[in-house]
């Protein structure tokens, strides 16, 4: 009995030390603007580049298809951590040796570049699947009205594909939140970096527990949201005839939902 009590006390002292929690929390909250900056910039560039890559992959121009395919394969197969180290340290060594100073990136731009290039590959696959899920008749109807391929994509296919890709893109966003922690290895003063530093100072892992709590505080609601959106989509597509490809009204609320929910995730900063 005595030893069990001792064990519990030890657990609390090392993992949930109240004094350390009080000291760490404000330190970690101060890193949220940096995490937010990483997230918003990386998401913007990743989704933009991902959309362009997916369109290239579906293009009739063979060079575009080849390039986008090679890009997606390469970055999906590459460890993200290696990408971070390469962009930050690898490029800097070449930059210093050759005098090409623009290769020497500060840590935050380096982190954004690593995250965007990799997540562009992930989201390109999501966009491609979304575009391919739109019935061929939609493109044919648009083309038969005299619209060009880009016009048909922009006004007919993409607006429908966007609704399809929102749940899987939410999942990508959740993964992105977690992967911002990799920026700690290139000294970006984000959550994990700061928690680790504090852990060293107090010789106690409680700061890691605080950081873990902050991560799940943001990710769990998004995980819930993503699975709700997925269920909603399944429900709405069930009633629609496969021939007319209509997903119409029922999926419209999905968009507004996300519009109100996303800033919570993005609002880390």
């Amino acid at each position: 009995m005595e030893s069990l009590l001792n064990g519990f006390e030890a657990f609390q002292r090392y993992y949930l030390n109240w004094q350390i929690i009080k000291e760490t929390t404000p330190l970690l909250l101060k890193t949220l603007p940096i995490v937010g900056e990483l997230l918003v910039l990386s998401m913007f560039f990743a989704f933009l580049l991902g959309l362009i890559l997916s369109l290239m992959r579906l293009s009739r121009v063979r060079v575009f298809r080849w390039f986008a395919g090679a890009y997606v394969d390469f970055f999906r197969g590459l460890p993200l951590l290696l990408n971070f180290v390469f962009v930050y340290s690898g490029l800097a060594i070449v930059g210093a040796a050759s005098g090409l100073r623009f290769l020497i990136l500060p840590s935050i731009p380096a982190a954004v570049l690593s995250l965007s290039t990799t997540y562009a590959a992930y989201s390109a696959e999501v966009f491609r699947a979304g575009i391919e899920s739109i019935h061929r008749g939609q493109m044919e109807a648009a083309r038969s009205l005299g619209m060009t391929y880009p016009q048909s994509m922009r006004y007919v296919v993409l607006p429908q594909a966007i609704k399809v890709v929102i749940p899987p893109l939410t999942n990508e966003f959740i993964a992105l939140i977690k992967d911002t922690s990799l920026a700690s290895v290139i000294s970006v003063q984000e959550l994990l970096f700061t928690a680790k530093e504090k852990m060293g100072v107090v010789a106690n892992p409680t700061p890691l527990m605080v950081a873990a709590f902050v991560y799940v505080l943001f990710t769990i609601p998004l995980i819930r949201l993503a699975s709700r959106l997925e269920k909603k989509r399944e429900g709405s597509s069930k009633g629609a005839k496969p021939t007319d490809g209509s997903t119409g009204k029922t999926s419209a609320p999905v968009l507004t939902d996300v519009a109100t929910q996303l800033p919570k995730g993005g609002g880390l900063g």
Binding site: H135, G137, Q138, E140, A141, A142, V156, P159, Q160, K163, A240, T243, D244, G245, S246, T247, G248, A252
Partner: peptide, 9 residues
């Protein structure tokens, strides 16, 4: 078209 292909959005 047979399947209408109206733009559902």
């Amino acid at each position: 078209f047979q399947s209408f292909n109206l733009f559902p959005h």
